[in-house]
């Protein structure tokens, strides 16, 4: 009993140190967003101000509008990725077809080949097709780093639930879309949440691809954020970084809550 208590104390120490280590930089960042002056060697800011936050909420800065646009873009990318990934992952998980091994590697290629190399070539094509400098073009180019994760992870999810459960639904009289809606979709929902969150973050934090294909016409949140970090305006960088983190966090919480509350009494695991 004593040993057990001692162990839990050690365990708690480890857990809290990790949490503090993770939260500490965020806390510093948050403090910077209010810090008018924070010279070395002081532990806390010496003077506080609201210049950063005032600028952020000022309509002329267009920061809120950009944030909204960015979230919308990432949401669209997430949904498109999921819609494309579900059938692709299902066929990779369950069916045998010619060239399957090739496709499996081919899908991961964007993760192996540097995105710059791919995006350069795509940029030329997009200019020819008139997709450069457009919202649609940016959505399409964001699919490049998103799809490998979507397909790869969902393939594993499908493998975990297995093919037979859908066959069982079919045998009981469900046609293919009923089997998908009533059996497959609820079973892969937890997987969809994790994949969706990941894709959202990938798209939301994308700087280079947006910059290249959007050509400055499509401005997303990271494109506002980066200049402040580069120019060393730490107060503004603090404000924008905090908003960036809070947006992502809020997205996670909303998605988790809506899906989880739907299944709260129906907790289950992949089997």
């Amino acid at each position: 009993m004593k040993v057990l208590q001692k162990n839990t104390i050690y365990l708690n120490i480890i857990i809290y140190s990790v949490i503090i280590l993770l939260i500490f930089p965020l806390a510093v960042m948050f403090m910077w967003s209010f810090a008018r002056s924070w010279p070395w060697p002081y532990l806390l800011p010496q003077d506080f101000g609201l210049r950063g936050w005032k600028y952020f909420f000022n309509p002329t800065s267009k920061a809120l509008f950009t944030l909204f646009l960015s979230v919308l873009l990432s949401l669209i990318v997430t949904i498109v990725t999921l819609v494309l990934s579900i059938p692709a992952a299902k066929s990779l998980a369950f069916y045998n077809f010619r060239g399957k091994a090739f496709f499996e590697i081919f899908i991961l290629a964007p993760l192996i080949v540097p995105p710059i190399a791919v995006a350069m070539g795509i940029h030329v094509q997009f200019i020819k097709l008139g997709l450069a400098d457009s919202f649609l073009g940016v959505v399409l180019v964001h699919l490049i780093p998103s799809l490998p994760y979507g397909i790869r992870i969902l393939t594993n999810v499908f493998q975990a639930i297995g093919e037979k459960i859908e066959l069982q639904a079919r045998v009981l009289g469900a046609n293919w879309w009923q089997a998908f809606i009533f059996v497959t979709l609820p079973l892969i929902a937890p997987g969809l949440v994790s994949v969706g969150s990941l894709i959202f973050i990938i798209s939301f934090s994308q700087y280079f691809l947006t910059f290249l294909i959007g050509g400055g016409q499509v401005v997303t949140f990271p494109m506002l954020l980066l200049p402040y970090i580069q120019s060393g305006d730490r107060m503004m960088a603090g404000v924008f970084s905090s908003v960036f983190v809070l947006t992502a966090l809020l997205f996670f919480i909303i998605v988790e809550k809506t899906i989880k509350s739907h299944y709260s009494s129906r907790e289950y695991f992949y089997f």
Partner: peptide, 26 residues
């Protein structure tokens, strides 16, 4: 022709009533 598989394959997200009623609902 209704197949009952070796590992039963009950739908884990549905309760007993919904499981049994599944075919009828479809």
């Amino acid at each position: 022709g209704v197949l009952v598989f070796q590992d039963f394959l009950l739908f884990p997200h549905l309760n007993v009533e919904e499981n049994i009623g599944f075919g009828l609902k479809m």
